[in-house]
């Protein structure tokens, strides 16, 4: 259904305590420090001011950082932008699921917290980004065994060609026990790199 061309205007990867934006490393920390410290260092480095960040779980922090870098010049608080979110991963919210499970495992040590439970859904990270960037837009979260550029590019083209969104922020955002990976890219209908499976595979080295 290629009756509308689509293009990748920007992309971002985060893994091994290193952030790449459009192919260049823009921030990195010692590989030995944990994700929480790396995320905090990145937040400070970019001079962001969004205190809710510190309440998020690791998956949402990872998604937030990547989305912030790609959307900072795209959105404002005052006006709405129609950028759909199409996110995916393998581990769902398992990292936080395990934390929550530990809090209910025994009668003696039963302390479930709403602040943890709410993050036991993978799509919460899309909710966080929607709130931050005022995106009242199409959202879907998919789970795959591994990063699936073919599915994502096809689904993104459907959203664009049926006028469900002006742009689409696509993501693979996976976090489980300190192993993490974020592949984010922003797709539009006007200019950039040709948006297709091959380009995505090249950009994200998969």
């Amino acid at each position: 259904m290629a009756d509308k061309n689509s293009f990748i205007q920007s992309w971002c990867t985060i893994q091994n305590n290193k952030i790449n934006l459009n192919g260049e490393t823009i921030f990195e920390s010692e590989p030995t420090i944990g994700f929480a410290d790396f995320a905090k260092a990145a937040y400070r480095n970019f001079g962001w001011s969004y205190p809710k960040f510190f309440k998020m779980d690791s998956l949402s922090k990872l998604a937030f950082i990547a989305a912030e870098l790609l959307l900072k010049d795209e959105t404002t608080n005052e006006t709405e932008t129609d950028i759909a979110l199409v996110f995916s991963n393998k581990s769902s919210s398992m990292d936080t699921d395990v934390t929550f499970q530990e809090s209910i495992a025994t009668k003696e040590n039963y302390y479930p917290s709403p602040a943890v439970f709410v993050y036991t859904l993978p799509n919460i990270c899309m909710g966080e980004i929607s709130i931050r960037h005022n995106l009242k837009s199409e959202n879907s979260f998919f789970i795959f065994e591994k990063f699936n550029p073919g599915f994502l590019s096809n689904y993104t083209d459907v959203l664009l060609s049926t006028n469900r969104a002006e742009k689409v922020l696509c993501a693979w955002v996976d976090f489980y026990k300190e192993t993490y990976r974020a592949n984010f890219y922003l797709v539009n209908s006007t200019e950039g790199l040709e948006h297709n499976e091959t380009t995505i595979k090249t950009l994200f080295n998969t």
Partner: peptide
């Protein structure tokens, strides 16, 4: 294709099916 989008997952999966069929 796994749709895991909180409590809308079940109905969203029908929308996803439709979109995938329309995209061929």
């Amino acid at each position: 294709v796994i749709v895991s989008n909180a409590c809308v997952s079940g109905i969203l999966s029908l929308a996803v099916a439709k979109r995938l069929i329309q995209s061929e």
